[in-house]
């Protein structure tokens, strides 16, 4: 295939950025990356940018920044080196920074190619969808048949709520209960669980005549602990007493 200088094959997804485009141009003209021919590469790069403009392709700002950088390096190389500048390695060869960036990018580009090969290979390997191990794990203690849904919990919650003291009629209580936060309840529930060997009935987490706010905050604390997988709820039989368990891994924590 003839790739003459001014034929640019544009596949936008081919070029992930200005460094990628530069590498492509360098490879195409079989240039030594360590010894960039700035005039040639800058012309090729700008041709490419102009072509993209003509084709009304949106050019990412990064491409323009690189164009400016190439022009800066190119012009710097045309000027006789400043004696003071020579002190600094970077100024001795204005290309140095760019070459270093290109080399670094090239390493990762190649690593990405190796990983793509690995992906292609591993793509053909299929694993069964794992069963929900959580559901399969045998009940924590004998006689506990079912893990509960949120709805079961809400029903139990409703039963406790029936015994609730209405905050509105009890000003004194309301003021004190106001200060209980979900975080405090979380700590309290965990403390109660630890004290009772990691197992407590849902009902016993509440006082005999709990205030509505206490119930709500306690429920939120329980849901939070379930979500964070510290505890789980189970019941022995349908509509039976709901029990809260500390997950095994935390029993001795």
């Amino acid at each position: 295939m003839d790739l003459s200088e001014n034929v640019c094959i544009i596949r936008l997804d081919d070029f992930e950025g200005p460094l990628d485009l530069l590498l492509h141009l360098i490879n195409r003209s079989e240039m030594d990356i360590q010894n960039l021919q700035m005039a040639k590469i800058t012309t090729q790069y700008l041709d490419f940018i102009h072509l993209m403009e003509e084709l009304n392709i949106n050019i990412a700002a990064e491409f323009l920044v690189m164009a400016a950088e190439l022009l800066r390096i190119k012009s710097k190389m045309l000027l006789p080196p400043d004696k003071e500048d020579l002190q600094m390695a970077e100024e001795a060869d204005p290309r140095q920074m760019l070459v270093a960036r290109l080399m670094e990018y090239k390493r990762y580009k190649e690593a990405a190619q190796a990983m793509s090969a690995r992906e292609a290979e591993w793509r053909g390997v299929f694993v069964r969808h794992p069963l929900e191990l959580e559901e399969l794990r045998p009940a924590i203690s004998p006689g506990i048949a079912e893990a509960l849904s949120v709805f079961d919990l809400l029903e139990a919650f409703q039963r406790v709520l029936e015994n609730a003291v209405d905050d509105e009629t009890d000003d004194e209580k309301r003021i004190s209960r106001d200060e209980i936060t979900v975080e405090q309840r979380v700590d309290l529930v965990l403390a109660r669980l630890h004290r009772s060997d990691g197992r407590i009935s849902f009902r016993h987490l509440f006082s005999d005549r709990p205030a509505r706010r206490e119930i709500i905050v306690t429920l939120l604390a329980i849901l939070e602990l379930i979500r964070k997988r510290y505890i789980m709820a189970a019941q022995e039989k349908c509509f039976g007493e709901i029990e809260i368990f500390l997950r095994e891994e935390y029993v001795n924590a």
């Binding site: 997804d13 992930e16 200005p18 990412a60 990405a112 990983m115």
Partner: peptide, 27 residues
């Protein structure tokens, strides 16, 4: 390709910041 390049940089250089990734990829 963009994702794989970024993936490679993160895999080899981790822990790495977004700015460090962008410095290598130039985008």
């Amino acid at each position: 390709r963009a994702a794989m390049e970024t993936m490679a940089i993160i895999a080899y250089k981790q822990p790495v910041t977004r700015a460090e990734i962008e410095a290598i990829r130039g985008v």
